[in-house]
Simulated scan of single mutants.
Amino acid sequence: MRTAALRAPAPSGLTPAAIGRAATLALHDELSLTPKPGLVTLIDAGSHEDMDAHTFLRSLFSLRRYFARIAEAGERGADFALLEQCGIAAEARMLAATGGVNTHRGAIFMLGLLCAAAGAVCRERGTAPQPQRLRDALRRHWGEALAARSLRPPRLPGGIAARRHGLRGASEEAAGAFPILFETAVPALTQALARGLTPTQARLDTLFHIIAVLDDSNLAHRGGLDGLRWAQRTARAFLDRGGIARPEGLREAHAISEDFVRRRLSPGGAADTLAAACWVRRVSAGA
Results as ranks from 00 to 15, higher is better:
3 T>V: 11
4 A>I: 09
5 A>H: 11
9 P>I: 07
24 T>Q: 02
24 T>S: 09
27 L>F: 10
29 D>N: 03
29 D>Q: 00
29 D>M: 03
35 P>E: 04
38 G>S: 02
39 L>K: 06
46 G>Y: 10
49 E>H: 11
50 D>Q: 15
50 D>R: 15
51 M>H: 03
55 T>G: 10
56 F>T: 06
57 L>S: 06
59 S>V: 04
60 L>Y: 05
61 F>W: 07
63 L>T: 01
64 R>P: 07
66 Y>V: 12
68 A>S: 15
71 A>P: 09
72 E>R: 11
74 G>S: 03
75 E>I: 12
76 R>F: 01
82 L>M: 10
82 L>S: 12
86 C>F: 15
90 A>E: 05
91 E>W: 10
99 G>E: 14
99 G>D: 13
103 T>A: 14
104 H>D: 07
107 A>S: 14
109 F>W: 10
111 L>V: 08
112 G>H: 12
119 G>W: 05
120 A>N: 09
122 C>H: 02
125 R>F: 01
126 G>I: 09
128 A>M: 07
132 Q>V: 01
133 R>I: 03
136 D>A: 14
137 A>M: 14
139 R>S: 04
141 H>D: 15
143 G>M: 07
143 G>I: 11
145 A>M: 07
148 A>W: 01
156 L>N: 02
156 L>Q: 14
157 P>R: 08
162 A>E: 11
163 R>V: 09
169 G>P: 03
171 S>M: 13
171 S>Q: 13
171 S>D: 15
175 A>I: 08
176 G>N: 11
183 E>A: 12
183 E>Q: 14
186 V>M: 00
186 V>H: 05
188 A>L: 13
193 L>F: 10
202 A>V: 09
208 F>K: 06
209 H>M: 05
210 I>L: 12
210 I>E: 04
213 V>A: 12
213 V>M: 06
217 S>H: 07
226 D>M: 09
228 L>V: 11
238 F>V: 01
241 R>Y: 01
248 E>A: 15
255 A>C: 02
260 F>T: 03
260 F>C: 08
261 V>R: 06
268 G>H: 11
268 G>T: 04
268 G>M: 05
280 V>K: 00
283 V>C: 06
285 A>H: 06
285 A>G: 05
